[in-house]
Design a protein around this nucleic acid. Structure first.
Length: 269
DNA sequence: AGGGCAACCCGGACGC
DNA sequence: TGCGTCCGGGTTGCCC
């Protein structure tokens, strides 16, 4: 599912393709995916261009030359394809935006959305997000500070967007594995060294996932060799019964706080 | 404060 | 081929 590394991959790859190119057409296949009437959406976008793309947590923010912003959240199973219509995947498209001959297709937006906002609206919408774990000022000391006095379950806390932004079900498990910590650990039991390991593992896992293009089934464009490069690099996520890459014992799957949770009972404590 | 849970949503996978 | 069924899962809001 699209989490920080996947959205960061999309941001990088899309930036070099659509920035400063005029939007020539917009089609809305599912009105619920947007937040204004279709004619308003189309009239606002057509003729505009995108001046920059920013990622905040699992969102992408498209800055329009007119000052408005498009706020994208793919939620579960949402993804994008960029290219010519003849290369379009055989999937239901909720929104498509044309840049001349090439189009950006938004696919699988069920709970996901592409919302149009005025200048200031977005900041209040995103204001409750926690810090970005890959930002340069996010240090082990910062994480220790955030955790101090806090109760709760490790995995639940990692996926809490108001605590940290951008980590979801897949990477919370990957981070716990890398840190050698059980996802079910409660925060007050974490020792200083364990918290430092958690911090190091968090950055290592997320950086590696970004470098390899994240965990995605489909390419962003024809010939895309980056997107989804992390699929084979997941150590525990969706690997139930497969051998742990560290010790060879089968990966365990349980349900934790009504989420799928994968770990190695030998390597994580 | 934190945990549990329902609701949201519907494409597509799967079974017959 | 065709139809019915059910799953997935981040987020919000509500309750305990």
């Amino acid at each position: 599912m699209p989490e920080l590394p996947e959205m960061e991959t999309y941001r990088r790859l899309l930036s070099s393709r659509i920035i400063d190119r005029p939007l020539t057409d917009v089609e809305v296949g599912r009105e619920k995916s947007i937040n204004v009437p279709v004619p308003v959406f189309r009239e606002t976008l057509i003729g505009n261009s995108i001046t920059g793309i920013e990622r905040r947590a699992k969102h992408l923010l498209f800055y329009l030359s007119s000052g408005e912003k498009l706020l994208l959240h793919l939620m579960l199973g949402g993804w994008m394809f960029y290219g010519r219509p003849e290369d379009k995947p055989d999937r239901t498209v909720q929104v498509e935006v044309s840049f001349g001959d090439e189009r950006l297709y938004f696919i699988g937006l069920r709970l996901g959305y592409l919302h149009l906002h005025k200048e200031a609206e977005v900041e209040s919408l995103l204001g409750k997000l926690g810090p970005e774990p890959l930002s340069p000022d996010f240090t082990a000391e910062r994480l220790t500070g955030l955790l101090s006095g806090k109760r709760g379950i490790l995995k639940t806390t990692l996926v809490d967007q108001s605590f940290l932004s951008g980590i979801g079900n897949c990477y919370s498990d990957e981070i716990c594995f890398e840190a050698g910590l059980l996802p079910s650990r409660t925060l007050p039991t974490l020792t200083g060294p364990e918290t430092r390991r958690l911090s190091i593992s968090m950055q290592a896992v997320l950086k590696e996932a970004v470098a390899y293009g994240g965990y995605m089934e489909d390419p962003l464009y024809k010939g895309d060799r980056l997107t989804g490069g992390y699929n084979e690099r997941c150590r525990v996520y969706d690997r139930k019964g497969e051998p742990c890459l560290r010790c060879g014992r089968p990966v365990i799957q349980v349900e934790l706080a009504s989420r799928k949770c994968f770990y190695c009972e030998n390597c994580q404590h």
